[in-house]
Design a protein around this nucleic acid. Structure first.
Lengths: 212, 212
DNA sequence: ATTTCATCGGACAGTGTGTATTCCGATGCA
DNA sequence: TGCATCGGAATACACACTGTCCGATGAAAT
């Protein structure tokens, strides 16, 4: 309010060392937040706590991430990176639609299994907390269109099961590749990642593809 | 603590009108709580709010339901009743295993669709709030064993797909009959209840049963 | 007339988020 | 080297919601 006309003909600073250390701080906070998922459900992630564990003051968390929600969105963003989200995109581009389906399904499982606790927290949060949808949107973005596209390609290549339309196929693929489907097997039933992948690939293929 | 030895040789009252009106109050609160799901996610269900809408004081909610969690558990209980949960059990007992699968799947969908917002809240809550598992346990109770049993019967009756074991079948049925599978189609994709039922029956059958 | 009980209404403690303000000290331009 | 600038700490505060406690009220039951 009172500093509005300050920076004319003032020095313009280009931070270097400090910007670097700021980045380190940022990462420390993200690590702390991620780690706190191991000690309980989403509700257990308290800014207070994260700050303390990161060896940072609470206000710093707010200046860097704006809000609890912002912190979670940042976590989701980092999940995309650390899980190499691009590989999923890549997998969906295989010329053989059916092979594409298999690979994309496996990539999804791989991504979810990278940080299962974090992923579960983000997804469940989205169902309960309206503010949290944003965090998940970053991960879910493009899944539905991707499934529609895949279904269309399967049809073009004559791989769709008899009597099933593109729309239905897309619907079923959406279910089979969803996080909850993964989580039901991985978390609730305790199956290892590879088995989950096998199961879900089988589920998806049987649901929408013709027998080979 | 201090009222332990009170009611010896005191008058024992037989409630009539008062018990009735108490029950009415209880129902008004449950209705209000349920209605508040329409105005937002679980987090939007605030005791303050529920009390006001029920035309009841906040402390009354606490005396009747103990806590927010207690209120939600009560809601889950009422869901079981209003959704006629027994019909699912009944459906699972059909002698023909495959018919049993179809019916049970449809019954699940019907139950979930009875109060979708409430159901979603309860299920997601279980993932976020460790204390809330109890509320959902009543709804999820027996689902997994039920699926194992169903898979076993399918095998006995020679209905299992070639090369698929009882364990795998149970896993896949668990996914197909889960609430999230329903929700993905009903909520995220906006399909009407009947279509959801069709889709999920198809998914389950194709996943684990041999072709007819 | 008296007892009992449902309900009320408010005070209070606890815990979490989010905001605003002030201060310190390292950084880096001149 | 002097000093402006910015990262971050510290602190206090507003606010929202849950829970607990307790005395008061008035209608129902005897």
């Amino acid at each position: 309010m009172k500093y509005h006309a300050v920076n004319m003909d003032k020095r313009r600073y280009v931070q270097r060392a400090r910007a670097a250390s700021a980045e380190v701080t940022r990462l420390r906070i993200l690590d702390a937040a991620e780690a706190s998922f191991d000690r309980g459900p989403l509700a257990a992630v308290r800014i207070d706590d994260v700050a303390r564990r990161a060896g940072v003051s609470r206000s710093t968390v707010y200046t860097l991430f704006d809000s609890r929600r912002g912190l979670l969105v940042a976590l989701a963003g980092r999940l995309r990176e650390v899980a190499e989200f691009e590989r999923l995109i890549e997998a969906s581009m295989h010329p053989d639609a059916r092979e594409s389906l298999r690979r994309a399904q496996r990539e999804s499982v791989r991504i979810f299994a990278t940080r299962p606790e974090l992923a579960r927290a983000l997804f469940t949060m989205a169902g309960v907390d309206a503010d949290a949808v944003a965090a998940v949107a970053a991960l879910e973005d493009g899944r539905r269109p991707g499934m529609v596209h895949l279904a269309r390609r399967l049809e073009e290549q004559g791989q769709l099961r008899a009597g099933i339309g593109v729309k239905e196929a897309a619907d079923l693929l959406s279910v089979a590749t969803s996080f909850p489907a993964f989580d039901e097997l991985f978390h609730a039933l305790g199956l290892p990642e590879e088995v989950v992948a096998d199961r879900l690939v089988a589920l998806a293929e049987r649901a929408v593809c013709r027998d080979e």
